[in-house]
Design a protein around this nucleic acid. Structure first.
Lengths: 205, 205
DNA sequence: CCAGGGAGTTTACACAGTGTCGATTTTTAT
DNA sequence: ATAAAAATCGACACTGTGTAAACTCCCTGG
């Protein structure tokens, strides 16, 4: 891929052989995660899939958890880029619709890794932090929309921040389940969540 | 508890020695779950805590997962008893308040095992079913309240059943996190969820 | 009373997966 | 061309799981 015409004085071929391997490992890991799940997947499996031995894999990652953590980090990185590119619409109704649509796409594209991240959040502290940070991005965004829709700001149980948190968990969990079923279910789940979000924001149709 | 005065002709001492051990194993498992978490907890630890050897434990349970499954089953059994005793209030507002209060108590008493059940729902199919069934009880109850509050019945994305599902996941996830923090957080989380539930039911203020 | 059987227990073993290490080969930069 | 750095391998030690055969205890029917 990206055949190198390697123009004059191009930046060093900084593409170490190891970088390719590392990517191969992560890709294999993602594939195996889909095929057998985290527990059944063994370090030997990953190494074999990447075309190396277990011993060689430990040159790149310190453990199975490290591999998965790296995979989550890679995926979550995409989410962050994506979310930075969010056009800040003024109208809350539009903002909500746009956010839900974007979230559906996110889960369609990365559902597997996101579910894995959630599952391992407890047991692997590193992943927990990664996912917490991601959730905070969402909560902050939801809070902003709620406040713009007229919900009282502040952290009291019935004001914007706390509500945003609950709504975020609602979306996470609902999408978590729906994304295991089918794209159609995800779309329906999205509609339901959007409706509750709108209602909670006082934007009753 | 329930000290046996063992009246005349009492039912056989159906209390086999093994029954006591079995309970001891489950109790130990619950304690260890709190202290070290599922992954770190080893079969040897459980056996030791229960005062027997690993080998003996395998006489009672086929595996570590089996032990935890039994523990979850025991706890979830309590939930079901508890929920059967629900007084069906007419007024939706009261019903919602009562349900949330009950849920707070549930999580205060059994938060640890409930969190464990949720975490293992994927990896241990048995536990997944147990928890799914429990969730269905809640969803059914929420659906009933929504409908009595005037939300259109049916399974379309914005009607009662789907909304109940989303609200159930919201509560599950919010309580899951809050119950890890403190009783105060749980109480606050409850207030937030109640507020969103009320709003979604069209019972604004 | 006492033999036999089932419940309960132990010790030893086989196995699978993890992580480490030193030796060795392959890349890469000069 | 060559030496250092990067990458790879195979063997090893360790931990945890699950199984099996043998042993003990105790209860119960004759």
């Amino acid at each position: 891929m990206t055949s190198g015409h390697d123009p004059v004085r191009s930046r060093r071929t900084t593409e170490r052989k190891g970088d390719v391997r590392e990517r191969a490992i992560l890709d294999t890991c993602e594939a195996l995660l889909a095929r057998k799940g985290y527990d059944a997947m063994t370090v030997g499996d990953i190494a074999q899939g990447a075309g190396i031995t277990r011993g060689a894999l430990y040159f790149y990652f310190g453990s199975k958890q490290d591999v998965v953590t790296a995979l989550v980090a890679r995926t979550v990185g995409h989410l962050w880029e994506r979310s930075r590119a969010t056009a800040q619409t003024e109208d809350p109704r539009q903002a909500i619709a746009a956010a839900m649509q974007r979230t559906v796409e996110l889960w369609n594209a990365h559902g597997l890794v996101m579910r894995t991240a959630i599952d391992l959040s407890l047991t692997v502290p590193e992943i927990g932090e990664l996912w917490n940070h991601t959730a905070d991005l969402f909560i902050t965004a939801i809070t902003a929309v709620l406040e713009r829709a007229g919900i009282q700001p502040g952290t009291a149980p019935e004001h914007a921040a706390a509500m945003a948190r609950a709504l975020c968990w609602m979306i996470e969990r609902t999408f978590y389940h729906a994304s295991q079923e089918s794209r159609e279910k995800l779309q329906e789940a999205s509609a339901t969540c959007e409706h509750i979000w709108l209602t909670s924001a006082g934007l009753t149709a």
